[in-house]
Nucleic acid binder design. Structure first.
Lengths: 262, 262
DNA sequence: ACCTGAACACCGTTCAAGT
DNA sequence: ACCTGAACACCGTTCAAGT
């Protein structure tokens, strides 16, 4: 949320790493991965391409910084205020499990479950707002799990896993499963919001799902019987609801396979 | 497996889409994502850069074709012969759940579970053999879920989900959860095998895990208490075992939340 | 200490010209 | 129908030179 501050750079303040990261996010949001260029960036910042290299090692490091900034924002918001930034798109899907207890009370499994949903939705929303984030996260996590992003995600998800009462020697497994699902599913869902952003969201969405659904229906019946049978289900579905249903699934698995030590 | 056929191109046969894809995979395997260049590719194929454009629309389409070819190979091998292409790296981790039933008998939940593990390991191995595949899959899935790769994955995973007896209206949720976990976890695990491939695999691995583990131990105790506590667990762990433990988790969740109808 | 901007090496892509 | 290879526009990065 603390992302969009300055509109069009007016070379008033000095260049800084923060301002560079901020401008880079704006470029990525506006024009996608291909939109981030040192030339475009320096133009936006009213400077030369070389100037950026004083504050940033290279493009890879810039992308790391940008990803880290957005993720930090997302998990912070999610952990504190619940489903932060959810906007009007949602719907109530958290009843899918039969919601247990209210948020705020510490230590109870129900609160932990809600906490996990909050973190998950925080990332879900961040990826929806910044569609380039999905690919960037995959790249960075598979390239350097020792970076700053992986610990951030592990920490925010893992604390809730711990609060769930999962025995310690299963923390890694449980946290990893949640993290991978969240990133993968959120990325998948970002596909449509990525295409066009200005149109009325529901029209756009339905059209998109209809296209995919139709494409699936036209697959070879011998090679893709299962996928074809999934097409109608795809047409009607609600992204958020599906996403949370997956979370519920994994939470149930965690509870069954790694019941609270007692 | 049907991947490495020709070693050094000898301009004997005519150019073809297949030979281009094949050479592209070799370049990606040898030098990573940055290694795939139309100039390097045309040199390897003993032709000019322009020639490639007769068979392939552009670089994006080439990457799609390459990804599709490798995935097709992976899921085909996984579905037919179990953990195909596992090589000598593995270890027996499938006992983690207490293996149920033998592969080959159709329709039983135990066989379906083994089938899912086989598909999962097929993708796991493919990503380990071609580390660039993880990022490429994330990119492609989040960009075009109507492409050829998504249906391929859905189909091979979903058939096993159906065989598990999951009721139809939960197929999408269950299959998605498995798919996202598989891709995410396999990608994460590819990080180390990506770094250096020629060295003795175990030495390399231990060194890598040690580095990450140490980095985690040095995190701020106030901000990252959970992640720090995970460090020792990281040091000893076995990639394959962890991966399969996650699969077990999700399978359990599926069975609990969506029990077989009837 | 921080910024400028020309220059370098390299990239994806195009296209007139060949066979 | 298929290939050649020079050319174009663009990119990340460097670095001598400025302040």
């Amino acid at each position: 949320m603390a992302t969009r501050t300055r509109r069009s750079q007016r070379r008033t303040e000095a260049l800084s790493r923060e301002r560079i990261v901020e401008a880079a996010i704006e470029l990525l949001d506006a024009a996608g991965e291909g939109g981030l260029t040192f030339r475009a960036l320096s133009e936006r910042l009213a400077t030369g391409p070389g100037a950026i290299y004083w504050h940033v090692e290279n493009k890879g490091e810039l992308l790391d910084a940008v990803t880290d900034a957005v993720v930090a924002d997302a998990v912070a918001g999610g952990a504190v205020s619940g489903a932060a930034g959810a906007g009007e798109a949602g719907g109530e899907a958290s009843e899918a499990t039969g919601a247990v207890g209210a948020l705020g009370a510490g230590g109870l499994p129900g609160a932990a479950r809600d906490g996990i949903r909050a973190v998950a939705l925080g990332l879900f929303d961040a990826i929806e707002e910044h569609p380039w984030l999905a690919t960037q996260l995959a790249t960075q996590l598979s390239r350097s799990p020792w970076g700053t992003v992986a610990p951030r995600l592990f920490e925010s998800i893992g604390r809730q896993v711990r609060a769930l009462g999962v025995p310690q020697d299963s923390w890694f497994t449980a946290t990893s499963a949640l993290m991978h699902y969240i990133l993968g599913a959120a990325g998948q869902n970002a596909a449509n919001s990525a295409s066009s952003r200005a149109l009325p969201p529901d029209v756009d969405r339905d059209q998109f799902l209809d296209t995919v659904s139709t494409a699936w229906e036209e697959l070879d019946p011998d090679e893709y019987p299962f996928t074809r049978s999934l097409a109608p289900q795809l047409r009607g579905h609600d992204d958020r609801e599906q996403f949370l249903a997956g979370i519920t699934l994994i939470l149930a698995g965690i509870t069954v396979v790694h019941p609270p030590a007692g």
